[in-house]
Design a protein around this nucleic acid. Structure first.
Ligand SMILES: NC(=O)c1ccc[n+]([C@@H]2O[C@H](COP(=O)([O-])OP(=O)(O)OC[C@H]3O[C@@H](n4cnc5c(N)ncnc54)[C@H](O)[C@@H]3O)[C@@H](O)[C@H]2O)c1
Ligand SMILES: NC(=O)c1ccc[n+]([C@@H]2O[C@H](COP(=O)([O-])OP(=O)(O)OC[C@H]3O[C@@H](n4cnc5c(N)ncnc54)[C@H](O)[C@@H]3O)[C@@H](O)[C@H]2O)c1
Lengths: 211, 211
DNA sequence: AAAACAATGTTATTTTAATAACAATTATTT
DNA sequence: AAATAATTGTTATTAAAATAACATTGTTTT
């Protein structure tokens, strides 16, 4: 099992590599990738070593091959399906983002409780009423859920998702969810990110010149 | 200077503590906080030690006091102002989220290039045309910017922001931004979060029972 | 008032992650 | 064809973060 941080970086590497591939580039060096993502070349090389790929000295890494190796790690043999719950502002932003930046995770269905947002296609994703949750998750064999619904319904929906066989949740609601041990949860809160930025901005301003 | 990870957790602690305060609770134990946020009690106690607060043994931490101490760390003496660039789906979701969950960072202005989204108030935030960027940032003394605009304009806007005196950026565009050393950037990409969830879901499924 | 208990605060240890160092190798130049 | 330069792959070192251990102390019970 690879370190969490390496997994995060691999995802970023792949996104950058895909851009380069579109620009018809064939090879790249560890220091290019590092510079683009604000990392060190050593770290890039170490990550690539860990996934067992080797480039050619003096020439760098084959972009095409590296993408393939990373994809094998991140995607495994078969693709993985996801659903999204709550098609408000955030849900739409994410759906739309996924339809543009392709990833090997496919969002196969969206759900909402509001009948005006249901039974239509939004950013290429079919939207269903939450009453069909269990049915559609089983039909599509989705294993991941993205939660962008109102906080009030979050725990209740989570219980239903777990029952339906969801094994990973990306949670954008501010609710702290209770799930069985074998369900992996990743919480994300923009306020935390922003407060972190604020803290380091303040530290920087205070220490101006003293570093 | 406190560790990055501690800062992230402090933000989460505060959010949880504020909830508890609203429920009229007075004290809480390290293990309660830990359980709620999927951490260990040791880590909670260590973080609290690092910020120099002490609870009372057998009784736990005073919720009110702990919030005050964390706020002093995260907010410092004076509040910090932020602006948001791009009032599309994501920009609106964030503005709205901030107007509900209060934080001591204030979003003082929003900007967009689309005249139909400009010169009105969205989720309590006044929205301006980007042409006024420099003017408004100076007037409001904003130090942080949240980027939720279309990728195409991101680097150009960033240059303007830096020129106007912005010192911290929370970047949601997929563009890798170039900034001077004294500007702190936090990049966030949902695809990375989701691919991380997918990876650990797969690992879990593969290792079922073998752990 | 004494004893038992249950929580904190802090130091020590372990684990994980990042950085650095450098030998091996492969293109390129002379 | 030999020398040079530049980049990789890997091991060693350092730094950061998390966990564990445990002595200390305030609270409760008897
Ligand atoms: N973590 C973050 O950084 C962050 C940022 C912004 C918003 N949020 C949160 O994300 C969520 C969505 O934000 P938004 O701005 O899109 O809000 P929104 O009100 O625009 O959208 C919420 C959607 O969820 C639907 N919904 C409500 N209850 C439901 C249920 N039981 N089942 C299915 N659908 C249901 C609503 O009909 C609506 O379409 C909120 O919980 C908000 O607090 C989090
Ligand atoms: N990081 C992530 O996880 C994530 C998720 C979703 C979307 N995104 C990105 O966030 C951005 C916004 O997404 P969205 O769904 O809200 O898109 P959107 O198209 O709904 O909104 C973009 C807004 O930016 C405005 N804009 C364009 N150029 C501008 C400029 N030069 N100055 C000011 N405003 C400008 C547009 O008028 C529009 O209102 C996009 O870059 C998208 O790729 C990132």
């Amino acid at each position: 099992m690879l370190p969490e941080k390496t997994i995060e970086r691999l995802s970023k590497y792949r996104r950058y590599l895909l851009e380069k591939l579109e620009q018809q580039e064939e090879y790249l060096y560890s220091h290019e990738l590092a510079a683009a993502l604000h990392l060190t070349p050593e770290q890039v090389r170490r990550d690539i070593m860990l996934i067992g790929y080797t480039g050619t000295q003096r020439k760098g890494y084959s972009i095409k091959e590296l993408i393939e190796v990373i994809s094998k790690i991140l995607d495994g043999d078969n693709k993985i399906n996801a659903v999204i719950i709550g098609m408000g502002h955030l849900g739409k932003a994410i759906s739309n983002y996924f339809s543009i930046k392709r990833s090997n995770i496919e969002i196969v269905a969206a759900f909402d409780i509001d009948s005006s947002k249901v039974d239509r296609i939004i950013s290429g994703i079919k939207s269903y009423h939450v009453d069909n949750l269990d049915l559609i998750i089983n039909e599509t064999d989705a294993k991941i859920a993205i939660l962008t619904l109102s906080p009030a319904g979050a725990q209740d929906i989570t219980d239903q998702l777990v029952y339906a066989g969801i094994k990973g949740i990306l949670n954008f609601t501010s609710v702290t969810l209770r799930v069985p041990e074998d369900v992996y949860i990743e919480n994300y809160d923009m306020i935390t990110s922003l407060e972190k930025v604020a803290y380091f901005v303040k530290e920087n301003i205070n220490n101006e010149g003293t570093l």
